[in-house]
Nucleic acid binder design. Structure first.
Lengths: 260, 260
DNA sequence: CGATACTGTCCTGTATAGCGGACAGTGTGT
DNA sequence: ACACACTGTCCGCTATACAGGACAGTATCG
């Protein structure tokens, strides 16, 4: 995750490493274990954890396990308030999930990975594929192809590390094929993949665009692969409509008339 | 906010100051302005902002205004998932707001301040008193009294800075009176204040308790001060029931059977 | 026009933050 | 009983992160 440098690391980098690690493990963790996991000296991490606990960014429970603290909640609240994308995207996802009964997600890129930003489970009993916030290689997903639509082939090659083209089952995606997929997604603004990251799941997605027509997120359904094609096309139409809906609401500047 | 020390500051402290300042202003802000606001050298802040932007903790828009980045959202998502308090508290607040038509809030302490963690506006047109995440002196609020119920008088004195006893209109709350209020709240687990932070608003609150019977949050209504006492008592009963409801669900360990 | 106030980048010296390691305490296995 | 693996605290050395300022560029003002 961090640089391989063997030299003394900065406090800031340690902080980032700590937070990223907690996100990755998604569990409270002992301070010593945390230090080991991110390859940092224990003394440094003890210090940092104390400082961040004081500020509420982290929290230490009665067994001295470290995890995120209340401050991140308030920071996120402010973040969400400034991003209509999330507010409206969530609303649409919840609505679609109710109307169609399918599991609906809002997805986005985070650095060079793909992640689920929000998920609303459907009414049918259907297992959850991936948790919110877990980072996944972009080529593993239908949405990932849509989210790259705004980029040139060269920058896509630069962005995605080679190992990300290897699927969980060992198959390797050809980069040329992938770029072709992206180009196709660019034109239609919709993708449908079958058994990509998971053999029994089809993923349907439509892109949410910002004012410059860049894909900033996708809204998608996770449906059983056995779902008839006609039904899937129908669902995809719903997604495209919903995405357009959200996109159109992003044009209003969020804090244009805000007080100083 | 930070120490008054004139010496060189740590990177970590700068990071915390930056995040806290963004929370306080609740707006994207220029880098130079940010540096000035927290009393830090510009060069340091440029550096830090760049680093934090890379990690997604901050975001810089096209006008080079800095604000929270997507990472905080995912950290908060993890935080919420590990805190049943928030999930259940939110649900209850939304339900109460629907049932009663009143503005409902979940409130908690953050360091030595009081803050609204979640707010669900009521059906009636009623102005919003305070935004989510804004820090308010504890003595200004009804909920604050409940939230201190687990502490001794001495630790309360140590916690709250003297200036926090001065109300916005200039009146000063006597510390003894305040401690008496807290003691009363401790017994009944409910508070009602009239025109404390605002002359036309009554605040009704009940405490949500953790497994050790410490108040970890409150659930409260903001109603017009003119609301008849009988009606207010009725609403308070609802709050107490809701709080008990949430409290009882906090006893289950959130990640007891979680996978490694 | 010059004056003032920004902004973003780059450089250099030194106060100090982070590292490594020692230490005592606790628990668990044999 | 000992060995081993922890944990949390403390301390001194030194590589370096931070502060401070210089710099060029841009914008607004009268």
């Amino acid at each position: 995750m961090s640089e391989i440098s063997r030299t003394r690391a900065r406090g800031i980098d340690r902080v980032v490493d700590v937070l990223e690690h907690l996100r990755a493990v998604r569990h409270p963790i002992g301070i010593g274990e945390l230090a080991r996991a991110i390859g940092a000296p224990r003394s440094s991490i003890y210090e940092i954890v104390e400082r961040l606990t004081d500020s509420g960014l982290l929290e230490v429970d009665e067994q001295n396990q470290v995890y995120f603290g209340p401050s991140v909640y308030f920071y996120a609240d402010a973040y969400l308030a400034s991003h209509p994308l999330f507010r409206h995207g969530r609303d649409e996802a919840i609505r679609l999930s109710k109307v169609t009964g399918e599991t609906t997600q809002i997805c986005m890129l985070l650095g060079n990975k793909y992640t689920v930003a929000f998920m609303q489970p459907g009414s049918s009993l259907f297992r959850i594929i991936s948790e919110t916030g877990v980072l996944v290689p972009i080529p593993w997903t239908a949405s990932g192809r849509l989210l790259l639509a705004g980029m040139s082939d060269d920058s896509i090659r630069a962005l995605i590390p080679p190992e990300d083209y290897v699927l969980p089952d060992g198959r390797v995606i050809d980069i040329k094929d992938f770029l072709t997929d992206v180009a196709a997604a660019r034109l239609t603004n919709r993708t449908m993949t079958l058994g990509l990251s998971d053999p029994y799941t089809a993923c349907l997605a439509a892109a949410i665009l910002d004012e410059k027509a860049h894909a900033v997120a996708t809204i998608c359904f996770m449906v059983p692969a056995a779902t008839p094609l006609e039904k899937r096309e129908e669902l995809l139409d719903e997604l495209v409509a919903a995405a357009r809906n959200v996109s159109s609401r992003l044009i209003d500047k969020p804090w244009a008339a805000a007080p100083r």
